[in-house]
Amino acid sequence: MLLRLFSALFGYNYEVVKAQTTVSKQKIVTLGSLMLIPVSLWTISGFYIGYDLLGAGMIKSIIGGLFVGALILIIDKSFLATPKESVNNWLKGFRIVFAVIATILGSIALDLMFFGGDLEEYREKLSAKTQKEEAAKYLLENKHLITELSNSVEIQKGIVETSKTDWKNEADGSGGSGKAGIDKIALLKEGIYKSDTAKLAQMEASLLSMKDSLGQEAIIYGQKMATKKSNALLSKVTDLHDFILSSGFSMFFYGLFFVAVFSLEIFFLITKSSTADSLFEKMLYAEEMVGEKRLQAITEQREEIQRQNGVMGTRAERVRQLSRDQNYLRKIG
């Protein structure tokens, strides 16, 4: 079953592969199975990024995961299907660099999956801190509104004290008209004092209301900014690595995880590069060499024909026909 699958995947004739040695068939199955590891990792990562991080929906996420997995399959298949003799250092170097990049990118989704619980706890603490900082920032930016109204309240308090003193002095005869008693002037000044007091009470109520309103707005603003930051993919990745770098143990554990993912990404490459060619691979290489020799012979034959045409002109074809005519050769002999 697997031999048929990987034979079709690598473009081999299954009937020919089936007749090969056990070692040759085992190597095809082994390399094909190892190749499916990074393909599976990328398919899962692509689906998770689309569904959980980008909110693309189930169907779109499945399509995205399969698309990314197919790209990795094509790239890895092209490397495995290339004969070892044709794989130069540039191609090996490119595949290693690609494996590193693929591991870094692919491990992001896996990291978010495996460290999701720890990250959520870390982000809750970070969100509370962010809300507090953003709320304080909002209050600081709008502090001038309260300051202006507070100054007006203090000024109004001075006005109230002045009108109160003026009214009392008028009532006891120590100021104003100099007549003690509640006359028209005293009543007028009492009205001014009460009016100023009412205005002060209104201004103090406005100040208290503004403080409450501004406090609520600051809380809402802090929550909004914290939510806005938490919804971004880059923000999640940044918070993940901030969490990882927060302690030596988490860095060590993450390093082990990264090495494991990288090993899975590149293990098929190491296997292909370090193992000897199977008999089937040698046969494919020999078949390629025979084809090259045959192509070289055809090229040389055509070059010879062109040379003969240049020397003998129109008689060249007749001479070649006579040279192929065995009866004619026997007559000459």
Score class of each variant (00 low, 15 high):
259 V>P: 09
328 Y>C: 06
283 M>P: 01
314 T>F: 06
216 Q>W: 05
39 V>R: 09
3 L>S: 14
48 Y>M: 03
143 K>G: 09
129 K>C: 07
23 V>M: 04
31 L>E: 02
181 G>P: 00
104 I>T: 07
112 L>T: 07
23 V>E: 11
13 N>R: 03
151 N>T: 15
197 T>L: 15
130 T>C: 09
122 Y>V: 02
52 D>V: 04
49 I>Y: 01
29 V>C: 00
241 H>W: 15
236 K>E: 07
279 L>K: 02
292 E>M: 02
309 N>Y: 00
15 E>A: 09
49 I>L: 05
294 R>H: 04
69 G>A: 11
318 R>F: 10
152 S>P: 07
164 K>L: 15
247 S>Q: 09
326 Q>L: 05
215 G>D: 15
156 Q>P: 13
152 S>F: 07
148 E>L: 05
332 I>K: 08
48 Y>P: 02
242 D>S: 13
314 T>P: 14
164 K>I: 03
291 G>P: 02
1 M>G: 06
25 K>Y: 07
181 G>M: 01
225 M>G: 03
45 S>F: 06
191 G>H: 12
86 S>N: 14
227 T>H: 08
289 M>G: 00
248 G>N: 11
326 Q>G: 03
158 G>N: 14
59 I>W: 06
182 I>L: 10
301 Q>H: 09
105 L>T: 08
261 V>W: 03
145 L>D: 07
282 K>H: 02
90 W>M: 08
190 E>I: 03
204 E>N: 04
233 L>D: 04
183 D>P: 00
202 Q>K: 11
256 L>G: 15
199 K>S: 14
201 A>Q: 13
88 N>E: 11
167 W>M: 13
58 M>T: 13
45 S>N: 06
232 A>R: 08
8 A>V: 02
285 Y>G: 01
281 E>F: 05
239 D>H: 10
252 F>Y: 14
315 R>S: 12
241 H>I: 11
88 N>M: 03
90 W>S: 11
185 I>P: 01
129 K>F: 11
282 K>C: 00
